[in-house]
Design a protein around this nucleic acid. Sequence first.
DNA 1: GCTCCAAGCCTAGCACTGCTAGACATTCGA
DNA 2: TCGAATGTCTAGCAGTGCTAGGCTTGGAGC
Lengths: 192, 192
Amino acid sequence: MSVQERKERERAGRERLIVATARELAEQQGWDAVTTRRLAERIEYSQPVLYSHFRGKREIIGAVALEGAAEMAAALRAAASAADGPRARVTALARAYLHFAARNPAVYDALFRLDGGLAFAQEDTPGPLKDAFAALLESLEEVAGDGVHPGLFTEVFWASLHGLATLTRAGRLPPEEAELRTELLVDRLAEF
Amino acid sequence: MSVQERKERERAGRERLIVATARELAEQQGWDAVTTRRLAERIEYSQPVLYSHFRGKREIIGAVALEGAAEMAAALRAAASAADGPRARVTALARAYLHFAARNPAVYDALFRLDGGLAFAQEDTPGPLKDAFAALLESLEEVAGDGVHPGLFTEVFWASLHGLATLTRAGRLPPEEAELRTELLVDRLAEF
DNA sequence: GCTCCAAGCCTAGCACTGCTAGACATTCGA
DNA sequence: TCGAATGTCTAGCAGTGCTAGGCTTGGAGC
């Protein structure tokens, strides 16, 4: 029994190593640089080992996404709880979201831009994803406004932040006025 | 002279064929299916011919993007001019934007998600791109609100629409309430 | 009308990608 | 100690974007 347990532990450890390495590599050189060969080389195993843990590259991206979702949820909650009053809270939330996207571009891409084979907005959506959305919802429901469904409001708010995050990083929006845009968005969308 | 002119005409025609075929293929089966081999086969030339017109696949994407930008600008202006009053105009604009994104996913990706090697928000930004932004600005400046820079407001509005468009299409947002989200966004962002 | 040359095009190939079949060790249970 | 099962690796497939170099063809000059 103990032998089997040790093996399972080692397997789990290697799986974490794969995910962490993929993330690190993606964060350093972009997801395009995360090839199965390079990833295998970095973890010091051969390529087929990757496929004994994941069905393919897509699932590895999905694993990075789940890890990132948990971190993002924590970051959002930390930012929100450190602010006093609805306005400050929502502003802090928006800043934290955009900050996370800018600081962890590879993770953000795994979550919202790439195909990690994850289900969204469905019954079988993985917990961490639901929880990240819940983290947004918690701070936003109080500013959704009368007669507006909090979930729907959160979706719109989230989509707007997502648009700012992606367009800014893709060079479609000049980064200088990012703060001004954030303030304008919060001021208009939320009802305090 | 006439021979040379004919050759240039034929060359230009073939270039249009390449762009149109790439777009068609991308719209039918997604950009991943647009490989240089498949594209070459469809235009009934060999691969190297593509490289005598474009530096690479990226430039082909860029060409599709420029074509799409002009169409999008036209669609936005048509929708806006058919509406009476600021509120109806902005709503029509938002709907037209999201409709274009949904109906021309490949073109939309070429424009805003993929790397087509185009400069954005800069001096050397290609005309069609500037014009598409201008089409948004024309209808939005009247609802930007007091003391808010129209350009900045347009950027925020655009980013929000972009977020809705991409998250909806990526399955991150349920498509059912798309219309409700659009209305909420317009109601909150614009000041009538 | 004939020759020659240059432009235009294609075949073949490079280095890379994600992924997998099958051979080879290694380690465990009887 | 032996057989089997687990684990890992080598080698290879079909596909990708892109390019070097040879070949055909069509126009220009005599």
